[in-house]
Simulated assay, not measured.
Amino acid sequence: MMKHIVFLQFKSDTPKTQIEHAFALLDGLRQPIPQIKSFKFGKYDSKEGMNHGFDYGFEMEFDNAEDRDIYLYHPTHLEVANQIIPLLEKGTDSLIAFDYDPSKGL
């Protein structure tokens, strides 16, 4: 299994409706990219304050790295990314993508 976790920092003046639309677009990727096994998202929700300005995140699961790579370079994913990146505080500097395979351990 491959997990793809992304943290996002939207511009402070981004309307909630645009953020909701961004996640709807991401969720909609499951139809053209069946390699996406699951999609979950949410807003940062902790009093710990260790999010360093990243206020939203999402997680996708894939069977393996090859399926994840299909998603990464799929034209529909690239189109969606090009719609979301302008909403971020500093473009791609306002996102963190972290992929890992839990079965591999260290």
Rank of each mutant, 00 (worst) to 15 (best):
N51D: 12
T92S: 15
F98G: 01
P86E: 10
F98M: 08
P34W: 08
T76E: 15
H52Y: 14
H4F: 02
D69W: 05
D93Q: 15
F54R: 03
R30C: 07
H77I: 10
L26T: 01
L26C: 09
D93W: 08
K16E: 14
H74S: 07
G53V: 07
L88Q: 03
M1L: 09
F23M: 08
L72Q: 12
P102G: 03
Q35S: 14
D63K: 10
P86W: 07
Q31H: 12
T17R: 14
I84L: 10
D13L: 11
E59L: 03
T17P: 06
K37N: 09
H21V: 03
F54P: 02
K90Y: 13
N64W: 06
S12N: 11
P32S: 08
K104G: 09
L8A: 04
L72K: 15
L78N: 10
H52G: 09
F54Q: 03
L95S: 04
I96P: 01
H52Q: 15
D63H: 09
E89L: 12
M60G: 01
I85S: 06
H74I: 11
D69V: 03
E48W: 11
N51K: 13
L25M: 14
P34A: 14
L95F: 09
D55Q: 15
F39I: 02
D13A: 12
K16L: 13
N51P: 10
Y73T: 15
P15D: 13
I5P: 04
F54N: 06
I96T: 09
Q83R: 09
G91T: 10
L25D: 11
T92Q: 13
L25E: 12
T76K: 15
N51I: 06
D63C: 04
V80P: 05
L26W: 08
F23W: 00
K90C: 09
Q18I: 01
I84S: 02
G53P: 08
A65S: 08
S94C: 11
P34H: 10
P32I: 02
V80W: 00
